[in-house]
């Protein structure tokens, strides 16, 4: 089994993630592969994504912690630094990775990225342009995705939602 010779560091990190999770973030390893994590991040309050629940996957490669974990959004999101396939443009996932960082710090950074999009370093050219030229409108679109997500997670009374759904899709 791949899980049998898991480095102590990964075990310790996992234990800590489960016992004292960071606010708004949950990460739990898959049962078949302890290097694969299912992650949920709540849209930060006072951000366009407030109310949304975003699913991500996180994988620790063989070289971890010398190499960065691989993280991807599974939930579609309207964000200048995240593309259609959910890939994230974040320096600490690439050249700024340091072995002294952890799963927790990576996920916190992603959460912070939701609060503060960086349209100057975009992954999705169109969204970034949108963000730069008309932030209010872009934020609205972001809110929209979060809202739709929230609907899916049944955070609103169903009568209300069906009405809004009708509006959005008409």
């Amino acid at each position: 089994m791949a899980n049998s010779n898991l480095p102590r560091r990964i075990i310790k990190e996992t234990q800590r993630l489960l016992s004292e999770p960071a606010p708004g973030i949950s990460a739990s390893p898959s049962e078949e592969n302890m290097r694969y994590f299912n992650v949920m991040i709540l849209g930060p309050s006072q951000s366009p994504y407030e109310g949304g629940v975003f699913k991500l996957e996180l994988f620790l490669p063989e070289e971890y912690p010398m190499a960065a974990p691989k993280v991807r959004f599974l939930t579609k999101i309207y964000h200048p630094n995240i593309d259609k396939l959910g890939r994230i443009c974040l320096d600490i996932l690439k050249d700024k990775w340091s072995p002294a960082l952890q799963i927790r710090t990576v996920l916190l950074s992603i959460q912070a990225l939701l609060s503060a999009p960086n349209p100057d370093d975009p992954l999705s050219e169109n969204i970034a342009k949108h963000w730069k030229t008309n932030e209010a409108e872009a934020v609205e679109t972001g809110e929209l995705t979060a809202f739709l997500l929230a609907l899916r997670h049944k955070k609103f009374p169903s009568s209300h939602s069906s009405l809004l759904f009708a509006n959005f899709y008409s």
Binding site: R8, R9, P65, A100
Partner: peptide
């Protein structure tokens, strides 16, 4: 100054 053992910031040992 007075530690006999230290925890490594990478492997946490």
């Amino acid at each position: 100054p007075n530690a006999k053992e230290l925890t490594c910031g990478i492997c946490f040992e």
